[in-house]
Computed example of a mutant assay.
Amino acid sequence: MSRSDFISARERMLVRIAQTRDASTAGLPHWARTVDGKWTFTSDGDWTGGAFVGQLWLAHLADPLRFPISDAKAALARMLPRAERRTAFKGFGFYHGAALGSILFGEETARDAAFTAARSLEQMFDPKLGLIPLGQDAEEASAVGIAESSIDSLQATGLLYWAADQLGDSHMEEVANTHMRRVLELHVRPDNSVIQSSTLDPQTGKVLRTHTHKGYSDVSTWGRAQGWAMLYTAHAAMVRPKQPLWRQYAVRVLDWWIHHVPADLVAYWDFDDPAIPTTSRDTAATAIAAAASLRLASALGPGDGAKYQAFAERTVAQLACGYLTPIGPGDRRPLGMLTGGCFTRKADARDIDTAPDAELIFGSYFLFESLVILTGLVPTGRI
């Protein structure tokens, strides 16, 4: 795709963002039906709502008249009750939904909300486990609490690193580093694939079992497990260039993805589902991979990073051409939907997370973020 094609895809997504904003009068979008684009909303955003707030910050950058900054601030206000809940996953929402507003526009309300969430995450750190556990309010169907961990909990690190920089807080920095190191040690396998979850002994931190909340099986590689590992190691490599460990991990898990993703670059929901190639794809995991690749390209620089820059561009092109509506003539669905997202196919997931073929708001966020970067609205490495 050319730059003009990326711009065209970005503009399609802006149409969808405006439609979603106009429909989101009380809650925040979670997932939408592929057939007609109708959203399922949550009152406070659940773990995903910050992705939509993040879209609104970026949309203001792209078209400030159509997307006044008050849109993002109003959506962020709906998330604020989550800032001190005991869940490691709030790092995702308050980085993209709040810290982003401070980074791009110096918004004080957004900065304060992000600080509140970051301090709460810092206080959740358990030295016996060497990490921030999922927490009693974590958004999973089961197996959450004081001694449960998952690769998803790396979502805390982007927010912690940003807040540590802003506050000059060395303890918060150490919490982020220790948490990240421990979670990666627990969940990145020797072959560089990723297992989603683990149960620990609350007194010793010893691993009692590894498993998956959302993948095919306890020994499979769920697409988004690999995706979160790629995203947050690459983000850490970008914001902490003097720490080679994060670059090493990012290269390992991203290279695994590159070597195992299908030829069309759009991942299946789980790399080990025996029903491949007739099972669900997951465009959300694929969009995360693109965003991770752009971060790693920035961290490595124009030489070593060229491989990952090119992979990100090819991945975004595949999503834009094959899954971003309209996909072909006569497609009457809302413009700019990223179709083909799979929350999970597991029957024991939360009812709100069982969509196997949908637009997932976080997948749409990461595709839009990638397009914003590829079209030059945000410099590589800034967010």
Rank of each mutant, 00 (worst) to 15 (best):
W39F: 07
L61F: 14
A88G: 11
D46C: 01
R82Y: 03
G49W: 02
M79N: 04
T42P: 01
Q55G: 02
R85Q: 12
G91F: 00
R21C: 08
W31C: 04
A74S: 15
T20E: 12
G45Q: 07
W31M: 13
W31L: 15
D22E: 15
A77E: 11
V35H: 15
H60F: 12
G54Y: 03
A83Y: 04
R78M: 06
V53A: 01
T87Q: 05
A59V: 08
A77M: 08
K38L: 15
R21H: 13
Q19M: 10
S70Y: 08
K90D: 11
Q55K: 10
A88V: 03
F52W: 04
F52H: 00
A72L: 04
P64A: 07
S43T: 14
M79F: 06
T42K: 01
A77S: 13
P29D: 05
A77G: 15
P68V: 07
I69L: 14
G91Q: 01
A88P: 00
M79G: 04
A23W: 03
G54K: 03
R82H: 03
G37S: 03
G27C: 04
F67M: 03
A74C: 15
I69E: 05
L56R: 02
L56G: 11
L56V: 14
G54A: 13
F52Y: 02
G37Y: 12
E84D: 09
D22I: 05
G49C: 09
T42E: 07
T34L: 08
A88M: 02
A77P: 11
S43K: 14
T20Y: 04
P64M: 07
G50H: 00
W31I: 14
D22K: 13
T42Y: 08
A72H: 05
R85M: 06
